[in-house]
Design a protein around this nucleic acid. Structure first.
Lengths: 352, 352
DNA sequence: CTGAAAGCGCTAACAA
DNA sequence: TTGTTAGCGCTTTCAG
């Protein structure tokens, strides 16, 4: 019940018949200690239930830790803004321990800028890094260097299939697509689903939502084998083009209810169109709590949003590194698949 | 960016031409300090941007803080078990600061036991208390004493309409009922809703879910003015009686789909019945993530659960008090209405 | 009203 | 391989 343990390193030293210097050595596996002392000390620690006082420890080591977060650039109101908010929370936590946190951003469509970001971090002598990996190979190279420098790193948003990370915090992508389909279909008679996607100009860039889309399509082929899937591509930078494409979609699909889904955070593109064209007979589902998406939810142009606390993910990532740095603890779970939140117009105002 | 500020109380003392003892005095409004010194010191603090180092401070004061949590008793798998888990998390956090946390439980159907719990806490000299208030008047009396002793307290789960609390963490009850109705009805043709309730033996005990039920009924009368509401009462301790009552319900209601809702965490009572009787044509919605409710969700006997992170609520409550004790900060928001999570069979496994 | 000084529990040289 | 010691930044007597 009581965590305010009173026994100090001095008590241990006395009981073990050594000096506190030696106790400290075994505590941190530093310097050489005779097997005999070591054993005795460990035993005494056990018996007395000694717990080190982290605050004394922090005070004494006066190290200069610095955590770097590598994430994509963003504009206000975009997906990564929420992550940045979480970094802010993490900074607050880490700051209490005298650990500073900074963000390094890169253009998620530009490999060079990612490489630059990594190099910048590497040359700054990081104590730990949080990374949202968009480029597979480059990231692998980067984390390998970190490993060699014994710098702990944690993935957020998505992770790679290597093993050296301290922790991962993100959404279960495949399941999120599966869930999304269930919410979209909702037990109705669905014979056509429009999957709206973002046209990506550069090739060679992996589509971050591909796994999610797979989950979506799997659900549909399992539950609605007859259902047709229509893919439609939207240009994120050209509103007129988007409207033209959507106009075409609505001309072709004459069903009484249109089922529309987007696997990324841009469902507001669709909502804005529907609002402008005053179209009501749609069931639209998308992802993530951008302000524009929430507005669409409230207005009824989007029926549901699947959200994740990407702020908490970032904050958790920073806490994990902080705790590792300060008290050498590793997170209880290495892979943390965070919950998928279903938002509709009645609960969205209590989110965040 | 950097929170590891380098300026210490010594720097301030030197710059102000006084000793650090004096600086400490103005920092904590302790002892008398000449107006002149005081002003000078304040100014220097401002100029240098001095931020005290909490860890040195904690180390030096070696105070003995103790937080008490007052919550209802429970059995394994019941609602309050999750709260207890959150208390455990909070204990871990507080423990880092040498603050201990203990739980005092009471019988939520017995006023005396609540009074006993309060007295016990009061006489233990609490540094702070977390309370889930089930008895209005007694709680008011209790918190008044706390206020007089200048002991900070925070409400979880529900709160009273007084003003002295440090913070509150809980679900927006009315809205949760409203949301629940929306999920239950889900745009279908609903002409009868069964509201299943718990028969409470003792009178004078306020029904904790009354606000939620109001939200539920309001939604229905707004969206389905013709819909009939049937109340059915279940005895929590008598399975046979529950089955009898439910048998009767199913004999009377011949509609093709039955709409069933419970406003508390016991929807597993209904699910168990449906499973045993092998009844499938129902749409059932309930609250809270008890293991038995989750099982019902997975099996399809309950379609949706509205959940809240009552563990996080408790943990947040303890953190709030800890932070207040250690660094004299008050929570950003006093009233924290936590999000309402919609769970179905596809996302429930990623919850908690 | 104020300064000096002795710790709080731990780390990291430095000697031995 | 080990003990000793000087702090880390702050609080708290205790003199003055």
């Amino acid at each position: 019940m009581n965590s305010g343990s009173k026994i100090t390193i001095n008590d241990v030293a006395r009981a073990a018949g050594v000096s506190k210097g030696t106790v400290d050595r075994v505590l941190h596996n530093r310097g050489e200690v005779s097997a005999k002392s070591r054993e005795k000390i460990l035993q005494v620690i056990e018996e007395l239930g000694y717990r080190p006082n982290f605050y004394a420890s922090i005070l004494a080591m006066k190290k200069d830790f610095h955590i770097y977060c590598i994430i994509p650039e963003f504009n206000n109101g975009e997906f990564w803004a929420l992550t940045e908010k979480g970094i802010e929370q993490g900074r607050e936590y880490a700051g209490r321990f005298g650990i500073s946190v900074s963000t390094v951003r890169y253009d998620q469509y530009d490999l060079d800028s990612f490489q630059n970001a990594c190099e910048k971090v590497l040359s700054s002598g990081p104590s730990g890094v949080v990374i949202a990996p968009m480029f597979r190979n480059e990231t692998l190279k980067f984390v390998k260097e970190l490993s060699e420098m014994r710098v702990p790193y944690v993935y957020i948003d998505s992770k790679l299939e290597e093993d050296g990370y301290l922790a991962y915090y993100g959404m279960p992508m495949y399941q999120s697509g599966y869930l999304c389909a269930d919410i979209l279909a909702d037990g109705r008679d669905v014979d056509m689903v429009h999957v709206i996607r973002i046209a990506r100009d550069k090739k060679g860039l992996s589509d971050p939502t591909i796994t999610r889309r797979t989950g979506l399509l799997d659900y549909i082929s399992e539950h609605y084998p007859e259902c047709r899937i229509e893919n439609t591509f939207l240009d994120p930078r050209d509103k007129a083009a988007r409207y033209a494409v959507l106009d075409e979609l609505f001309e072709k699909d004459k069903s009484p209810v249109k089922y529309i889904v987007m696997c990324n955070s841009r469902v507001h593109f669709v909502a804005d169109y529907l609002r402008d064209r005053n179209i009501g007979n749609c069931r639209v589902v998308g992802f993530d709590v951008l302000e524009r998406n929430l507005a669409a939810l409230r207005d009824g142009y989007v029926q549901a949003l699947i959200a994740q606390h990407s702020d908490k993910q970032a904050a958790a990532a920073i806490s994990a590194i902080t705790d590792y740095l300060i008290m050498h603890t590793v997170p209880q779970k290495k892979d943390n698949y965070t919950q998928m939140d279903i938002l509709n117009k009645y609960n969205c105002d209590y989110y965040l």
